[in-house]
Nucleic acid binder design. Sequence first.
DNA 1: CATCATGTAACATATGAAGTTACATGAAAC
DNA 2: GTTTCATGTAACTTCATATGTTACATGATG
Lengths: 154, 154
Amino acid sequence: MKRDSKLSGILHVLLHMAEAKAPVTSEEMAKAMQTNPVVVRRIMAGLREAGFVRSGKGHGGGWTIARELSAITLRDIYVAVGSPELFAMGNRTESPGCIVEQAVNAALDGAFRDAETLLLDRFAEVTLADLSADFHARMLASGKTIDLGTIHAA
Amino acid sequence: MKRDSKLSGILHVLLHMAEAKAPVTSEEMAKAMQTNPVVVRRIMAGLREAGFVRSGKGHGGGWTIARELSAITLRDIYVAVGSPELFAMGNRTESPGCIVEQAVNAALDGAFRDAETLLLDRFAEVTLADLSADFHARMLASGKTIDLGTIHAA
DNA sequence: CATCATGTAACATATGAAGTTACATGAAAC
DNA sequence: GTTTCATGTAACTTCATATGTTACATGATG
């Protein structure tokens, strides 16, 4: 299965936006993430609807973060991008007539449900401000500075 | 992403094998699971190598379980089928040069690692005997009996 | 009103799980 | 011993879907 990287990608972009003073365009973000502007807009659309970012058209347009970083958790973002499937495995048949398969599904479902709860709880504990702080700590430790345009230069 | 159903499928088949007195052929299993005999053999191969099942060729051949059901955990089976990827999401880039992305990956990786541990621990707690007992309880509750050939009749 | 940027539909590509075909190997029945 | 049945496995096809791309409409700024 191909793994979904929406969450990873959008977090990356959001932290870069947090560093920027001015709005960041889809094109700049796309270059940074080595992907396509449309892909960026597609992912950002969910965040805009949820009110976490704003977009502006025309000259000087682009994307800006609409809330305090400390008021946005990873879980918020996960939900805003559509709560994508977390697990790569599932039941062969969701509503099996076979009683054997029902027993199998029940056992697996229980474990996966608990894991999902754990994961979402963990996501809820981490804010963008936390990630930003971690990033700044890493930057200090490495002695490097960062800039969207240069670090991701094409 | 298409979800992997090897684990679910193989558990189903194993429990049916546990009910059968004689060896079960790949073809019978495939019919029961509405799939192809080769797919079944492919999955079972891992279990055979791990020593959980035996296969026999020719007349009267087929598959049998080689151990006590209580000595086989879901985790054993998960590992035997190749420890398939558990999660449907991953990092956009595994070894990013960008420090921002490193911070993002670190946060996500931590959560996913914990969820994986939880999941595998849960798998390790459940044996095939447990699943079989659950199945028998369900069968009693429903008043139905079960038979590989009839319940899954083509 | 020319330019820039988003919004979005429609289509293309790539990846990987699952399904299929084909044939070799080996065991049991006769 | 040869026919039949079943596994073993490589090679190929199909299918789902995440991601990438093209094309064009909409609206804002200078």
